[in-house]
Design a protein around this nucleic acid. Structure first.
Lengths: 218, 218
DNA sequence: AAATAAAATTAGGCAAGACTAATTTTATTT
DNA sequence: AAATAAAATTAGTCTTGCCTAATTTTATTT
């Protein structure tokens, strides 16, 4: 099995790989984890030895099939625990990520499957991310962001990319949650700011960065 | 906060302290944790610096009030998770200890209290051990073992001391669980073996060690 | 009390996983 | 293409928590 650190690297690489098609470099990993690039190089060697990743200077870091499988199961545990914390223990949206960050590392052969059953086999976690099944399969991730659509478009919040409490608390203040209907009224040329109408209500202006972190259904 | 290792030492010291009135020596701790006495000496220094224990060569290791408080909360978390695993996730008696051993280290200010509420504020864990309340108070532990009573005594299994799966599986095989009625029929002088009648049924002979690990109500 | 055994302690080491500083390699400018 | 900047890598260090081996202290026998 993997150490806590190895799991965190795997999850990070998986995340970066899903996020964008971009090359996953040591620097990118270091930035995401808040580590020093030198440490990342150490771990790349370790994960390569364990045949969980392949590192090619040209292509960057890639997960092997085994690495993908292992990473998927970590993500599965994380998202299941998030559902548990929110639905069963009554935590708020912005509190669950960090706790799940610890819970996801609890290793027991049947724990995730039992939890999954206990929760009624949820498809999505509270942030709208799909929960991988035991076999690794999962529903499609949403990929279009609020910043991608044309002015005038009506859409529905399907998921959030950023799960920091700073962002989630801001959403709460704006009365936005998964399922909320939003219309993109206008894009400001100057800095990409978005004028939106939340739930058919009054207009608000949000930053481009904000829009890029809202995944939508149309 | 404390590291995983520190918490395990605290819990071990707490356990040894509750178990018997005996002096808690580095060797005793080392044996319980399966560590080298030299390592224990290191940790004794560390916990002393953190003012969680007091070590006196004459008296052995003792928990400070803060140490007691911290240890109690770890035990609280452990026992609450055991209830969760058994009652909500459907694990068996003998599977829950090891998983709870990991879960107990998850730190979040309100997690234990939320879990406690979710479980309906249980008084005892599945092994019959009392669950400390948030304020550290807890129901009295059972202290009389099956090996302590006089032949002829009728009693009820209140708790088990040993929580290894070897012991718990043996109990299961004998159809003994918390609440089972047992009569001590006879004590064998030679080696302390006990002849018992389980639930009024036929007679079985068990070892003295077995009897010492069954805590009873009369 | 002296001899022996057991327990405690010190000293030195090791692996994991992080770091800083220095160097080499690769990319980007000019 | 040369100069510069950025990224990757190496080398060496630190902390945690464990280890073994050697030594000192404490208990137990004889």
């Amino acid at each position: 099995m993997h150490t806590l650190s190895e799991e965190n690297y795997l999850k990070c690489i998986y995340r970066l790989w899903q996020d964008r098609g971009e090359k996953i470099t040591p620097t990118a990993i270091a930035e995401w984890l808040g580590n020093n690039p030198a440490s990342v190089v150490d771990m790349i060697r370790k994960l390569t030895d364990k045949q969980l990743i392949i590192y090619d200077k040209k292509k960057g870091v890639e997960l092997t099939p085994q690495g993908q499988k292992d990473a998927t199961l970590i993500v599965r545990r994380h998202r299941l625990w998030e559902v548990f914390l929110l639905e069963k223990l009554g935590y708020h949206w912005d509190e669950i990520h960090d706790i799940a960050e610890d819970l996801e590392h609890i290793k027991d052969a049947t724990l995730a499957d039992r939890l999954d059953k206990f929760l009624g086999f949820p498809e999505y976690d509270p942030h709208g991310d799909p929960i991988p099944k035991a076999n690794g399969k999962m529903a499609k991730r949403h990929s279009i962001t609020l910043a991608d659509v044309k002015p005038g478009t009506h859409c529905r919040v399907a998921a959030v990319k950023d799960t920091t409490s700073a962002f989630l608390q801001y959403l709460q203040k704006l009365s936005i949650s998964i399922g909320t209907k939003i219309q993109l009224v206008e894009k400001i040329q100057f800095d990409g700011s978005l004028v939106i109408s939340i739930g058919g209500g009054e207009r608000t202006t949000v930053s481009q960065k904000f829009g890029e972190n809202i995944l939508i259904d149309m």
